[in-house]
Amino acid sequence: MVTTQDIQVKFFRAISMLSSPLEALVQELAPDALVADIFFPFANDVAARHGIPRLTFHGTSFFSMCAADSVRRHRPHEKVSSDDELFLLPGLPDKITMTRPQLPDELKISVETDFTRLLKRSYEAAGRCFGMIVNSFYELEPRYVDHYRNALGKRAWHIGPVSLCNRNLQEKAQRGGREASVDGHECLEWLNSRGPCSVVYVCFGTHDVQVLG
């Protein structure tokens, strides 16, 4: 039976085949920088060979990056005795607790697989790149932007909210049937007007490469 992990491994192996076409594209366009999704670890080497910085694009949030860093660094889920027991994510600005079932599989299993090795290479490459570009904005999660930059000592720029389907400002302002400014202030006002636990945020992620000229 084909598992989800089998499909993921094949997908990431297919992504690795983009290395040569990306090399040719950078050679042709001679860009000033290369922005690549976190799952393109080979982008570091391509950028280095052409003497340009590689920046990693992260499509979720500063909070998720800080939380994942806490789990990888401290392994708090290994110190509880059951899946129902809460554990604290150390070192974060707020008291964040989780249970083991809430973690992604690659953080829970102790045995390395092809999939976890692929993820490890991706995160290691992201850690060595020039900096991180995040689909977020400062007012949404200021404590975690500051934590990522200052406590973890990493370069990062928030450029969100990023929308690739609506290109011009007029279309962006009309999304959802209400006006929203590009800097996100009206978005925060709308969120603050909702009741507790009444808004669901869903992110399906992305896999893309962008070249900055």
Rank of each mutant, 00 (worst) to 15 (best):
M1C: 13
M1Y: 09
M1F: 12
V2G: 12
T3E: 08
Q5H: 02
D6I: 02
Q8N: 13
F11E: 01
F12M: 13
R13N: 15
A14D: 10
A14C: 04
A14P: 06
I15W: 06
S16C: 04
S16E: 11
M17P: 00
M17I: 03
L18I: 01
S20Q: 08
P21W: 09
P21Y: 07
V26T: 10
V26G: 00
L29S: 11
A30I: 14
P31M: 00
A33K: 06
V35P: 10
D37W: 04
D37V: 11
D37M: 06
I38E: 01
I38D: 05
F40T: 12
P41D: 00
P41I: 01
P41E: 03
N44Y: 03
D45T: 15
D45Y: 01
V46R: 08
V46Q: 07
V46S: 03
V46I: 15
A47S: 11
A47Q: 11
A48K: 14
I52S: 02
P53V: 15
P53L: 03
R54T: 03
R54Y: 01
T56L: 06
F57K: 03
G59D: 07
F62C: 15
F63T: 15
S64F: 12
S64A: 13
M65I: 09
C66T: 05
R73P: 00
R75F: 02
V80M: 07
V80G: 11
E85S: 13
E85N: 13
L86K: 15
F87D: 09
L88G: 08
L88H: 11
L89Y: 01
L89A: 08
L92A: 05
P93G: 07
P93L: 02
D94I: 04
D94E: 12
K95N: 09
K95Y: 01
I96C: 09
M98Y: 11
M98Q: 09
P101S: 05
Q102T: 04
Q102N: 14
D105N: 10
D105H: 13
E106N: 14
K108S: 09
E112Q: 13
E112W: 06
F115V: 06
F115C: 01
R117H: 13
L119P: 01
K120F: 08
R121L: 13
R121Q: 14
A125H: 10
A125S: 15
G127Y: 07
C129E: 15
F130D: 05
F130R: 10
G131R: 11
I133P: 13
I133Q: 11
V134G: 03
V134M: 04
V134Y: 01
S136M: 08
S136G: 15
F137V: 00
F137C: 10
Y138R: 15
L140K: 07
P142K: 04
R143V: 02
D146C: 09
H147P: 02
N150F: 05
L152A: 11
K154R: 15
I159C: 15
L164P: 06
N166L: 05
R167V: 15
R167F: 14
R167N: 12
N168W: 02
A173C: 05
G176L: 01
G177P: 09
R178Y: 07
E179N: 13
A180R: 14
A180I: 07
A180Y: 11
H185R: 11
L188K: 12
L188W: 10
S193I: 04
R194A: 09
G195L: 08
P196R: 02
S198P: 08
F204T: 00
D208K: 09
D208W: 09
V209L: 12
V209H: 02
V209M: 11
V209Q: 05
V211A: 02
L212D: 08
